[in-house]
């Protein structure tokens, strides 16, 4: 199956963000949040009009059907104009499943955030079911003063199941220069990835990238104080392992591994 989704957001004269395009198809269905704080949204595909609240526009990414399924080719593009602010949330975890021909499923995400824009991308976790082969590639281009929060959660197998194979690569450019390029890959098709240099005994692996141009002037070592990130306690324990990594730029990557999805979510929630 081939499917694509596209979100275009522009900043209005009053400072609010208007969704000028919101187009998705299963399994990449997009739902507009009715208003700030509302969890569920009305019909998908309603004519885009301004959020009108002054806050960021909100979109829910809903799976619609099971999948991605082996062989699926999914594309998602996000385009935020100057000053536009958008939050993309997930509704349910997606479950990558093997397809009929043993082919790989792929999700390509391309996001662009203009001057003064802010994108928060926090879909629900991706579960790599037994036998699955999935690959996510995300490329994010940020203007120099754009804000970004990007969350990734991988669950290695459903409850009591051997994991499938999954990889996810996130490449972030800031003002045209590479800020982060990172792939993590787990599962039987990635030798050594489930061992002590890979996921270890953990079943849930996640990361949270925060790019904040305000940190450009802060010293490059250490985590900016005052940010919730500085409250995270680095640890390497059997239940939870987490580190807060300052990149060579105004950005911090929280990288975490946990025994299960709920524990991982708790750690990453604490970072925002």
């Amino acid at each position: 199956m081939r499917a694509s989704a596209r979100i275009v957001a522009r900043c209005q004269a009053d400072g609010s963000t208007r969704l000028t395009t919101l187009a998705g198809e299963a399994p990449l269905l997009l739902r507009r949040a009715a208003r700030q704080g509302a969890k569920q949204a009305p019909d998908e595909g309603a004519p885009p009009d301004g959020a009108g609240t002054g806050g960021p526009a909100r979109v829910y990414l809903a799976g619609g059907t099971a999948g991605p399924l082996g062989g699926d080719e999914l594309r998602c593009s996000v385009d935020l104009g100057p000053g536009a602010r958008l939050e993309v949330h997930g509704v349910d975890a997606s479950v990558a499943l093997p397809g009929p021909h043993g082919r790989e499923s792929a999700l390509e995400i391309h996001a662009r955030v203009g001057e003064g824009g802010a994108l928060s991308w926090s879909p629900r976790p991706l579960v790599a079911a037994r036998g699955a082969r999935h690959r996510t590639v995300a490329r994010v281009e940020l203007a120099a003063d754009a804000l970004l929060v990007w969350r990734d959660e991988l669950i290695l197998g459903r409850d009591g199941e051997d994991p499938g194979s999954v990889s996810t690569r996130l490449r972030v450019l800031r003002a045209g220069r590479v800020l982060l390029d990172r792939e993590v890959a787990f599962g039987p098709r990635h030798p050594g990835s489930l061992g002590p240099a890979g996921s270890g005994a953990h079943r849930a692996i996640g990361s949270l990238l925060v790019v904040d141009p305000a940190w450009a002037s802060a010293p490059v070592d250490g985590v900016p104080s005052g940010s919730p990130l500085s409250r995270l306690t680095p640890q390497d324990e059997p239940a939870v392992a987490v580190a807060v990594l300052r990149l060579s730029g105004p950005a911090v990557l929280v990288t975490a591994a946990a025994s299960g999805a709920a524990a991982l979510a708790r750690v990453l929630d604490g970072a925002i």
Partner: peptide, 13 residues
């Protein structure tokens, strides 16, 4: 660009 989360985490401990 393949990394290893647990190695990163352990390196910071």
């Amino acid at each position: 660009a393949v990394g290893a989360p647990l190695l990163e985490i352990a390196a910071q401990q």
